[in-house]
Computed example of a mutant assay.
Amino acid sequence: MAADSRILVTGATGFIGRRLTRALVDQGYDVRAMTRRPEGYDGPGTPVGADVHQPETLPDAVKGIDVAFYLVHSLDDNDFEKTDAAAARAFGSAAAEAGVRQIIYMGGLGADDEKLSPHLRSRREVESLLGEAGVPVTVLRAAIVVGAGGVSWELTRQLVKNLPAMVVPKWVDTMTQPVALDDVVRYLVGVVDQPEAMGRVFEIGGPEQLTYQQMLQVAAELANGRRVRILRVPVLTPRLSSYWLALVTDIDVTTGRNLIDSMVTEVIVTDNSIRDIVPGEPIPYAEAVRRALAVDPV
C-alpha cells in the first residue's frame, strides 16, 4: 500500500465517504474530497467540485489521481437504474482518460444467478460500467452497513424508537449478513493499491447471518432494554410497505421502496477471500449497534 498515492473520494460527504476520507487522511494519503458544493465542505482532505451526473465536471476532479473511490448511487431517484448507469459510464471514461490505476466501488451482495431486485441489479451493472473504459475495478459487495448516518441504520433506529409493536410482511424472515461501518472502512482502505485486489470482486460482512426480525430485536433490546412485538402478515406488498415506512419514519417513499425491494433477496457472504488481503475479525452485529447508538442514540 503506497501512502503517497493521490486518492479521490466521490460521495465524500455521504455516510461511508465521510468516515473513509478521514481514515485515508489519517493513513497519510493525499485525498481529494469530491462534492457538488466544495465551498461548503468542512471535512478532511482537499475539496474538489464535481458531479458524476455532469460529465463535463469530471476531468478536473480525476486529473492526477491514482486511486478513485466511487461511492455514489441514487436510491431516492425513481429512474435510478438509468441515472446510475450513465454516471458510472462517464466516471469510468474520465478516470481512464486521466490515467487512474484503480477504481474501488461499494456494491451489493446477492448471488448473480438469483432474480435480483432493481436496486441490486443496478449495482451489478455499475460494477461493469465503471471498468468499461479499461481501469481495473475493485468491488466490495456488502449487505446492510450498520453505522450512524446510514439509511438502513436510520430506518432501524426510528422503527425501534417509534413503535412498541410492528405489523410486518414475511420478508422480515429473509437472511442477511450485516457489516459494521468500521469494518467497511477498514476493508476499503485495505484494498488501496493492492495488486491482489485489482479487477476483483470481494464479499464483506459481519460474523453473523441474521434475519431482519432478529436485527430489529437486537437493536430494540440494546436501545430500549426491551424486545419489540412483531406480528407477521402474509401479504404486505413492497409498495404498501414503503408507504407504511414513510408514515412511521422520515424515510421517503421512493428510498423505502427501493430498500424493501432488496429485502426479499437473501444476501449472505459465500466467499471470505477479502480476509487474505485485509486480515482481521469482523465486528459482531450487537457491537456495531452499540457503536451506532453511541453516536446516534434512540
Rank of each mutant, 00 (worst) to 15 (best):
L155A: 12
L130A: 05
R123M: 06
E127T: 10
G147Y: 04
W153M: 10
T156W: 11
K115V: 12
R124E: 08
L120S: 02
Q102E: 06
A94L: 00
S122I: 07
E132T: 10
A143P: 10
D84V: 11
V139N: 03
R141K: 14
V137M: 06
V139K: 04
A87I: 10
R101K: 15
E127H: 08
F91V: 10
A143V: 05
T83W: 05
R141Y: 09
A142L: 08
L130T: 07
Q102K: 00
E125S: 15
V139Q: 01
R89Q: 15
S117V: 13
Y105S: 06
K82N: 14
R121M: 12
S93V: 12
D84G: 11
A142C: 09
G92E: 05
P118I: 11
F80S: 05
L116E: 04
T138P: 10
A148M: 04
G99F: 06
K82G: 13
D76N: 14
H119Q: 12
A94N: 02
T83C: 03
L109V: 01
G150A: 04
P136E: 11
D112L: 14
G131A: 01
Q102M: 02
Q102P: 00
R101T: 15
E125L: 15
A143G: 15
K82Y: 08
H119E: 09
S93Y: 04
W153G: 01
R101V: 14
A86Q: 13
A95N: 09
I103C: 05
G131E: 00
V100W: 01
R124A: 09
L155R: 04
A142Y: 08
L116Q: 12
R124F: 01
